[in-house]
Simulated assay, not measured.
Amino acid sequence: MDLFSRSWTALLEAVAETPDEDFERPSGCTGWLVRDLVCHLVIDAQDVLITLVTPAETEATVDAVTYWNLVEPPTGEDPLDALIPRLAAAYGDPRLLKFHLDDVGSAAGRAARLADRALRVSTRDVVLTAGDYLSAYVLEWTLHHLDLIAHRPSATEPPAETLAAARASLEKIAGTPFPASFSDSDALLIGTGRRTPTDADKAALGDLAAKLPLVLG
């Protein structure tokens, strides 16, 4: 199973295993409850389905790394950011949200497995191969898996191979590696501002500390 499928399958399983009462608890995404994060994943799964059936005739303009832009931290003023908590709340019963994600998410997973990796697709006003698009989302899924279990220490972490791949992608975006002393999870959490670095972390990061957090958009 490729890294996209591995990371997405693990994330869907982690959502399915999340107790209903935890949907009202904070996630690792600042300002979002777990239910908001899961609602965001539904929208992401829809985006995957839409993108994989939106072929482009022009040359690729980005790859799996340059697909991501560094943006300012969200303020909550973006209309979509404001919509997601309201939409998530409208589901009411967490089981409905789980069902919707499993339904759309499973379809997105099947579409990814069937996709021609060399096909060029269009999304967000850029063009890239389907293979690069799916590779880019390994970082997204892995980060959101960490967000999902941020306050559930006993929950299953993302697969080791997808953590390593996500770290490698973030290091390419940063233009430099994270300290070897950082675990893959620590590199991702500290690198994207999900965890505040300690003084020791800052010392290990050196000049890279001034560039953090890397907020992806």
Rank of each mutant, 00 (worst) to 15 (best):
Ile149Gln: 05
Leu188Glu: 11
Asp44Ile: 06
Ala166Cys: 08
Ile84Glu: 02
Phe23Asp: 04
Glu77Ile: 05
Pro177Lys: 04
Phe178Leu: 00
Val138Ile: 13
Leu134Asn: 11
Thr142Val: 09
Ala108Gln: 09
Leu208Ser: 12
Pro73His: 08
Ala209Thr: 01
Val104Glu: 12
Leu52His: 04
Ala168Val: 00
Asp47Trp: 07
Gly92Ala: 09
Thr61Ile: 02
Val48Ile: 14
Asp207Trp: 03
Cys39Arg: 12
Ala130Ile: 12
Arg117Leu: 14
Val48Leu: 13
Val38Pro: 08
Gly131Thr: 05
Ala209His: 09
Gly175Asp: 00
Ile173Asn: 08
Leu216Cys: 01
Ala108Met: 10
Val127Gln: 02
Ser106Pro: 00
Leu139Gly: 06
Val62Gln: 12
Thr58Glu: 15
Ala60Tyr: 08
Glu161Phe: 00
Ala136Asp: 06
Ile84His: 03
Thr9Ala: 15
Thr176Cys: 09
Ala89Thr: 10
Arg194Met: 05
Ala88Met: 09
Thr198His: 10
Asp132Asn: 12
Ser122Tyr: 05
Thr192Asn: 10
Thr30Ala: 15
Ala203Asn: 05
Leu37Arg: 11
Glu59Asp: 15
Glu24Cys: 00
Cys29Met: 11
Thr30Arg: 15
Ala209Gln: 06
Arg124Gln: 10
Glu72Leu: 11
Asp20Phe: 08
Leu87Met: 14
Trp8Thr: 02
Gly217Trp: 07
Asp132Val: 02
Pro213Ile: 12
Pro179Asp: 06
Ser122Glu: 13
Arg194Asn: 02
Gly76Glu: 02
Ala204Ser: 14
Ala209Asn: 08
Ile149His: 08
Ala168Pro: 00
Glu157Ser: 12
Val48Trp: 09
Asp186Gln: 15
Leu163Val: 08
Glu72Asn: 06
Val65Ala: 04
Ala16Gly: 11
His145Leu: 01
Pro179Ser: 05
Thr142Pro: 09
Arg86Cys: 08
Lys211Ala: 15
Thr9Trp: 02
Leu49Glu: 14
Pro74Lys: 04
Glu24Asn: 14
Asp132His: 12
Ala166Asp: 00
Ala60Asp: 07
Leu128Tyr: 05
Lys98Phe: 01
Phe99Val: 03
Glu57Leu: 11
Ala64Gly: 03
Gly28Met: 13
Val104Gln: 11
Asp47Met: 09
Ala174Gln: 00
Ser154Met: 07
Arg167Met: 08
Thr9Phe: 02
Glu13Ala: 15
Leu134Ala: 12
Phe99Arg: 14
Asp184Leu: 01
Arg6Ile: 10
Ala112Lys: 09
Gly175Gln: 02
Glu13Arg: 13
Gly217Phe: 06
Ile149Leu: 04
Glu17Trp: 00
Glu157Thr: 12
Arg120Ser: 10
Leu41His: 00
Gly28Tyr: 12
Thr61Tyr: 03
Trp8Asp: 07
Gly193Asp: 03
Ser106Tyr: 00
His100Tyr: 05
Thr192Trp: 07
Pro55Phe: 05
Ala174Val: 03
Thr58Ile: 07
Ala89Ser: 15
Glu59His: 14
Lys172Trp: 01
His144Cys: 07
Val62Gly: 04
